[in-house]
Structures are given as structure tokens and as C-alpha cells.
Design a protein around this nucleic acid. Structure first.
Length: 422
RNA sequence: GGAGAGUUGGCAGAGUGGUCGAUUGCGGCGGUCUUGAAAACCGUUGUACCGAGAGGUACCGGGGGUUCGAAUCCCUCACUCUCCGCCA
């Protein structure tokens, strides 16, 4: 959520920035500023009436104490009129408050100056490429066929027990999952991230804190009996650790990591790119989350990108990094880099990681602040990234490292898997 | 699931209708003393909003009510803890 103070001061900059998302925010911003003006005027009125009432109440108390009943009762009658207008003004202030917040919720984050304007994924810029497209002297199989042939993943069993998008991993397939999770967590640990095992369900306040609610309500599995939500990513519990927190400014940088299963309803996304592991309702992911002083955000994002690059290179996967254009950048993000690995057998690029800086957009909702040397509180910056999401990594590993004899496990994973091929 | 107790400032913990944004202790910050530190002593120490400023308003788990006046009384919701039951 954008800060109202920023809208007051930098309206034109925000309008320019949001154009990169193909959004003309002029009208919304004017509407907000209009309501804000009324809000402030009404609030000033309200507060002066409250002040008057407060002092009257004190006087009446004093009169009672002095035994001046009659005078006290006269004073009492004076208050009723004031109370009337107080409650009317209060009502209006609350109303305006709500309307402003409602409008603020509709505005996405302002893109960073590096972000290009653009409509969709076709306008994303490739900023880095690594590796060679693997060549095969046989017809490479897509991962869903390899998974079946090698008995690694059972999609039909998942359908039977739960439904589509909830596969069983089995045998070496299951052990490969566990190996990847351990590998990713160890790498994050070595890079200075503190490891967490967070809850896999969160309450409503946490959903609002990271912005899944109210905008993406339909994407989360909801447990009605207890009013809880299954997490769509570890970002939600990990970032909400800092909800309503004021940090001392010597605490930075804060670096967290956690593995969790992720649950996404993916409502409305059927029929496209959903084969095999490409899109699931439950998948595993290791997430990295950072809370930063605004001065260090750019460096932190660079560091996260280097970290993810390292992971992919150690796994021997060809990849590219895209800086998303305005239209493709997520609602809360100021700038996002997507990592895509090349899938040989599907002949397409699969998104395996997304690293974003949110600047104050999340922390404003979270009320995550720090107190600087000048004793002023200001909003922290948050960032997060996947390091990494498993399914498409598994898909790429199977497809790109396949031979006619089977699948070769990358060197770095072998101490975790206990086997070097499948 | 049953019964009970609780939720107050960074923490601990007072406060049962007016002078309470809130006693006190600890912690934090500043100072005195000291070569330095500790101890002791003194001072200071919540957040947000409105206002050019003076100043004002709101917040004692959330929401509502009673009252001229609520941390304090009433209603309601949420959460936490203890005991019992069940249980990995």
C-alpha cells in the first residue's frame, strides 16, 4: 500500500511511474487527495470539539467536588449539543478513512527507475544468460514421462487421494525432493540467512500484512472452521514476523530463510502450461526474506540475485534472468527479477525464481519500521525471493540431465541424495 | 471437549469512575563521579495523527454501550495461560 504522505508530496512522480504499468492513476490520486483534504479538515474540527468536551468534563467534575450541583447540571446541558456534532464528525472521519484506504488498496507499487514500461512477458528484458542448451543424440523425454518411467512421481495417485495438482513423490523422486530442500537450506545458511520452520497456516491479519488479502483471496486455501489460511509461500509467515515491529537501526540486515510447502488454488488457470510439474496446488519452496534499511535495498537485491545464480550454476542448469517490465511486475513489487531455466524436452523456459524488492509497500501495511539515529521512525524495506521453488527445478534437472541410461544427479546433490543417478 | 484465570507502555507489574498517557521496578539513553569501567546518584525514556506554531486528539487486546467524564462499570468478539479429558 502506498503511503498517503507520498501521494501528497509526489503525485506527479507516482503518475509517471505507474504509466510503466499502463495505469493512469491520475483520477484515483485526485480522488484520494480530495478525500484526504476533507478528512483533514473534518478531523481538525472533530478534535477541537473533543478538546472542548474534555475541558467541560473536567470543569463539571470540579464543580461536583465543590458541591455546586446546580452549576454542574447547567454545564451538563451544554455538552449534549457538542456531543451530537462530535459523533456526526466522527462518523464522517471514519467514512472518509475507509474510502481512502479502499482506494489506496487499488494502487500497485510504483516501479523502480530501472523498470521499463511494457504490457506483458513479451516486454521483459533479458539482463543475464548463463549456460549452454543441452544437446541430445536421442529424443529427450519431457519430465512427466521420465517421472513415470523412472517411478519418481505419481500424478494419478495424487488425483485419487486428493485431486489434480497434488502429486505423490516416491522412491528416488521423494529423496530427490528432500535432497534439494536440504541443499537449498544449507546454501542459504552459508549465505548468512537464519533458518526458520514457520507455521504452514496463518491468520487473517497475516494475510493482510503481506498483501494476499484482500486482493488475492481466491488464491489461498481457507480453513473456515478456524478462520485460517494455508500459506501460498513462506514469505507470508516469515515477513509477518515483523508485523507491528519497530526495529533499532543497528539490526540490519535481517536475512531469513525457510522451507515450506506452498498451497495455491490457482483458480482459473487450468488448461494452459499445467502439464506435469509445471503448475501444482501444492509444491515445495525455500524462500529467502530480507528486511533492510532503505539505503541498502539495491545491494540486497543484487546479493539475492547472486545467491540464486550460484544455486542454478551448481545444479548445472542453463538459465536466464529477466527484469520484468512494468506490466508484468507483481502488484506489491517495485522491481522483480525472474529466473528461468531452459527445459530441453519442452523447448521452453520455466520460471524457477522470482526476486523482488517491495521497498515500503509491504512495510506500510505491516507497520514495520525502524528508529534511526535521529529518533525518527520510518518504514523499513522488504525483499524476498525463491531460492528455490522445487517443481520446475526437478523438471529441468530430469529433462536436461537425462541420458539414455537414466538421469545424472549433479555433483553437489549427491551427498544429499545418496545416489548419483536415477 | 469441560472448568477457571487473564490480556495495561521494551519487559515486569500497580491502578475499580474525574487531577491517569497512566505509580513503581528493571532495561535503554544522557549526565555527575572515575585514568577507564562498575557501583551510586541525578535527569530522561511509547506510538500515531491534526496543526505553520502554540498546542491539540486518539490509543491500557478488538468492537460497541452506560456516563458530563471510562484503563476502571456493562455487552460482545478475539487471543493467552492453568487444571481436567483425549491424543502424536
Amino acid at each position: 500500500m502506498l503511503e498517503i504522505s507520498r501521494i501528497r508530496n509526489e503525485k506527479e512522480t507516482i503518475i509517471e511511474g505507474l504509466k510503466k504499468r499502463n495505469i493512469d492513476a491520475t483520477e484515483t490520486l485526485n480522488q484520494i487527495l480530495g478525500l484526504d483534504q476533507e478528512w483533514r479538515a473534518t478531523k481538525t474540527q472533530l478534535e477541537s470539539i473533543s478538546a472542548e468536551l474534555n475541558s467541560l468534563a473536567k470543569e463539571i467534575g470540579q464543580l461536583f467536588k465543590e458541591g455546586k450541583q446546580a452549576e454542574a447540571n447547567t454545564a451538563k446541558t451544554k455538552t449534549s449539543e457538542l456531543k451530537d456534532s462530535e459523533s456526526k464528525l466522527k462518523e464522517r472521519v471514519d467514512e472518509l478513512d475507509k474510502e481512502i484506504t479502499q482506494l489506496l488498496y487499488t494502487l500497485p507499487n510504483v516501479p523502480n527507475e530501472l523498470v521499463q514500461s511494457g504490457r506483458d512477458e513479451k516486454d521483459n528484458e533479458t539482463v543475464f544468460e548463463f549456460g549452454q542448451t543441452p544437446e541430445f543424440n536421442f529424443e529427450p523425454l519431457p519430465h512427466w514421462e521420465l517421472a513415470k518411467k523412472l517411478n519418481l512421481i505419481d500424478f494419478e495417485l495424487g488425483v485419487k487421494v486428493t485431486g489434480a495438482g497434488f502429486p505423490f513423490y516416491r522412491g528416488k523422486g521423494a529423496r530427490l525432493q528432500r535432497a534439494l530442500i536440504a541443499f537449498f537450506l544449507d546454501e542459504a545458511h552459508n549465505a548468512g540467512y537464519e533458518e526458520f520452520i514457520p507455521p504452514h497456516v496463518v491468520n487473517e491479519a497475516s494475510g493482510y500484512g503481506t498483501g494476499q488479502l484482500p486482493d488475492k483471496e481466491g488464491q489461498m486455501y481457507y480453513i473456515g472452521a478456524d478462520d485460517l489460511y494455508l500459506i501460498p509461500t513462506a514469505e507470508v509467515p516469515l515477513t509477518n514476523i515483523f508485523r507491528d515491529v519497530i526495529l533499532p537501526d543497528d539490526k540490519f540486515s535481517i536475512k531469513l530463510t525457510g522451507y515450506t510447502p506452498c498451497f495455491r488454488r490457482e483458480a482459473g488457470s487450468y488448461g494452459k502450461d499445467v502439464r506435469g510439474l509445471n503448475r501444482l496446488h501444492q509444491f515445495d519452496k525455500v524462500e529467502i526474506v530480507r528486511v533492510e534499511h532503505p539505503d541498502n535495498t539495491a545491494a540486497a537485491l543484487e546479493e539475492m540475485i547472486e545467491h540464486v545464480k550460484g544455486l542454478l550454476e551448481k545444479l548445472g542448469l542453463q538459465y536466464r534472468i529477466l527484469r520484468l517490465c512494468g506490466g508484468d511486475t507483481g502488484f506489491a513489487s517495485a522491481m522483480t527479477y525472474d529466473f528461468e531455466v531452459y527445459s530441453a524436452a519442452q523447448d521452453k523456459w520455466l520460471e524457477v525464481s522470482s526476486c523482488s524488492r517491495f521497498d515500503t509497500f509491504q512495510s506500510n501495511r505491516l507497520k514495520l519500521r525502524f528508529k534511526g539515529a535521529d529518533k525518527k521512525t520510518q518504514l523499513c524495506h522488504t525483499l524476498n525471493g525463491s531460492a528455490l521453488a522445487l517443481p520446475r527445478i526437478v523438471a529441468a534437472l530430469l529433462e536436461n540431465h537425462q541420458t539414455e541410461e537414466g538421469v545424472v544427479i549433479p555433483e553437489v546433490l549427491r551427498k544429499y541424495t545418496g545416489f548419483d543417478s536415477i
